[in-house]
Every structure is written in structure tokens, then in C-alpha cells.
């Protein structure tokens, strides 16, 4: 009843006589945002969909030609692009798995009361708030084979993390794990604190083992929120550009977003890069859809 009263004022009432109607206000509040997003997000995408069927090159003035599906055909049969996708998949698996393990592990450790817990939790969250490009750059010094503290601490001599083709991708993934484990930790902590305490007490009375309690009580109750963290991080890792781009130039660490950037803004192969952008976009939207679905599910609980 309350919401009906809010949206349909009695036209004879004093409130309705003064000022705008609720319908006007609603439209005034919502429509500008929608228009803005359509103009600056959707319209550009339609624009680039058009270019994806052409051989347009933004750095040349000669007229472009319509080439149909040729860009898409070439991209999908290009071994180079496939290897970029394989690199990206490797990166996503390693870094997201690392973040889930480290983040959930940290949350399990933090899920108890101790002095200065709030301060320590906030300190642990610092990495994810910082600029990936700028911090990533600084990891070059940390990884440095000649004077990096990492090699010194672990006694790795002059192991060149970022210029060794075999390790560059994993070095970037380690930095990404450092940055984003706190994200998984934050979500896991919320999930853990929502587990009703009486379940643990009941398990303790039954003398259930730690493992039993963990797999039968903790994990099932935390898993929806873990799934959200997993999907969100997968989506973000798939899009990774800045951290990898500022850390290394190794071709073995060329993620799909970096490939796309180079194709569009270094080789100026605009038409083809629009096509590649669409392939990437469809993949991202698929994961986004999944993410929002689960987000709404958890929200309803």
C-alpha cells in the first residue's frame, strides 16, 4: 500500500498540486543516466561493430572498403590470436586460483577475534585499492635480477623473472595475486561471519573433527559468496591490461587485451581490431551475465 501511495498521489491533494508529478521526477532522475550510457557506451560499440566489417585503418586517409566477415575469419584462424587466448586462459587460471586460495586462507585465519583486527584487515586491503599500472611498474624493481629484494630474500641469484619468457606471465600473476587476494578475503570474511555460530557449537558438542566441520558447515554456507568472488575475479583477470602491460614486454605474457591494444593503437589495424574487440566483448558479456545472476541470488538471501 505504501508504495502505491507514493507513486499515485491523489490528484486533488495539496502535494500533487504543487511541484512535479512523481512520474516526471522519475523520468527526470533516470532518463539522463540512461541516455548518457547509451551515447557514450552503446553508440561507440555500434560504431565499432560497423568498422569491424571493413579494412579501415585509422592512421591512413585512403577510403576503407567493406570486407564482410573477412576480419572475423582471419582472426579466428590466426594462430597468434589463439596463442594470446591460451596465454590469457593460463593467466586467468593461475591468478584467480591463487587469489581464491590465498584470499580464503587469509579469511579463515582472520575469522576470530584478536586485538587490532580492524586495523590489520584494512592494511591487508591496501593493495587492491592502488593503481595496478603504477604499482605493477614498481614490481619491476622488486623482481629485478640484479638488486631486487625478492631474489635476495629467496636466494634466487640473478633469476630474471620478467625477462625470462617462461616466467614472465607467472611473475605478473603473482603480482596480481598479491593485489587481489584481499578482494577474495574481504568477501570470504563476510561469508564466514554470516555462518550461524550455533552450527559450530552443535558440531563441537558432537565432537566433529575440524575437517568435518569445515567441509560440512563452513564451505557449503560460504560457497555462494566464494562463487561471486570467483566469477568477478575471472572476469577482471580476463580483461587484465595495465598490470601486465607496465610490467613486462615478453610476448609470452601478451594477454588478449594487450594484443588488442597493440593491434588498434600500434599497428593501426582498426577494422580488424574492432572485430577482435567484439570477440572479447561477447566473452566478457557472457561472464557478466553469469555474475549478475549469482549476485541477485545472493542478494535475495
Amino acid at each position: 500500500m505504501a508504495s502505491v501511495a507514493l507513486t499515485n498521489l491523489d490528484p486533488a491533494s495539496r502535494a500533487a498540486a504543487r511541484g512535479w508529478s512523481d512520474l516526471t521526477i522519475r523520468n527526470m532522475f533516470i532518463i539522463p543516466t540512461l541516455v548518457f550510457l547509451i551515447v557514450f557506451n552503446i553508440f561507440p560499440l555500434i560504431y565499432s561493430l560497423g568498422y569491424s566489417f571493413t579494412n579501415f585503418a585509422a592512421n591512413r586517409s585512403e577510403p576503407w572498403q567493406f570486407v564482410g566477415l573477412q576480419n572475423y575469419r582471419e582472426l579466428l584462424s590466426d594462430d597468434h590470436i589463439w596463442s594470446n587466448f591460451v596465454i590469457t586462459a593460463k593467466y586467468v587460471i593461475v591468478s584467480v586460483a591463487g587469489q581464491m586460495i590465498v584470499g580464503f586462507g587469509l579469511a579463515l585465519l582472520l575469522n576470530r577475534s584478536f586485538p587490532m583486527k580492524g586495523l590489520i584487515t584494512t592494511l591487508l586491503l591496501l593493495p587492491m585499492m592502488m593503481s595496478a599500472a603504477v604499482v605493477g611498474l614498481f614490481w619491476q624493481l622488486l623482481y629485478s635480477p640484479s638488486w631486487g629484494p625478492i631474489n635476495y630474500v629467496f636466494g634466487l641469484g640473478d633469476f630474471a623473472w620478467l625477462s625470462n619468457p617462461d616466467s614472465a606471465l607467472y611473475a605478473v600473476a603473482i603480482t596480481d595475486i598479491w593485489m587481489w587476494s584481499p578482494f577474495v578475503m574481504l568477501l570470504s570474511l563476510a561469508g564466514l561471519s554470516a555462518v550461524p555460530q550455533h552450527l559450530y557449537e552443535a558440531a563441537a558438542i558432537d565432537r566433529a573433527s575440524w575437517w568435518y566441520t569445515f567441509t560440512r558447515i563452513t564451505l557449503p554456507l560460504v560457497s555462494p559468496i566464494l562463487l561471486i568472488a570467483l566469477i568477478f575475479r575471472t572476469m577482471e583477470a580476463f580483461k587484465t591490461f595495465d598490470i601486465a602491460y607496465t610490467m613486462t614486454t615478453q610476448p609470452t605474457a601478451e594477454l588478449i587485451a594487450i594484443r588488442l591494444y597493440k593491434q588498434a593503437f600500434q599497428q593501426w589495424d582498426t577494422g580488424k581490431s574492432c572485430a577482435l574487440a567484439y570477440i572479447v566483448l561477447i566473452m566478457v558479456l557472457a561472464i557478466t551475465n553469469l555474475y549478475v545472476k549469482y549476485l541477485n541470488k545472493v542478494k535475495e538471501r
Binding site: 560499440l45 585509422a58 580483461k239 591490461f241 588488442l260 582498426t270 574487440a277 567484439y278 561472464i287
Partner: peptide, 19 residues
């Protein structure tokens, strides 16, 4: 509205650069 946030920046940047 949320999906516009998820668009990869490089994907949006190509047409925006041209515009």
C-alpha cells in the same frame, strides 16, 4: 547499467578514440 561497467576499457577505447 551494470554491464556498461564490465566492458573492457580497450574495447570501448577504440571507437571512442576515433570519435
Amino acid at each position: 547499467i551494470l554491464s556498461t561497467r564490465m566492458l573492457p576499457p580497450v574495447v570501448v577505447a577504440i571507437p571512442m578514440f576515433l570519435m
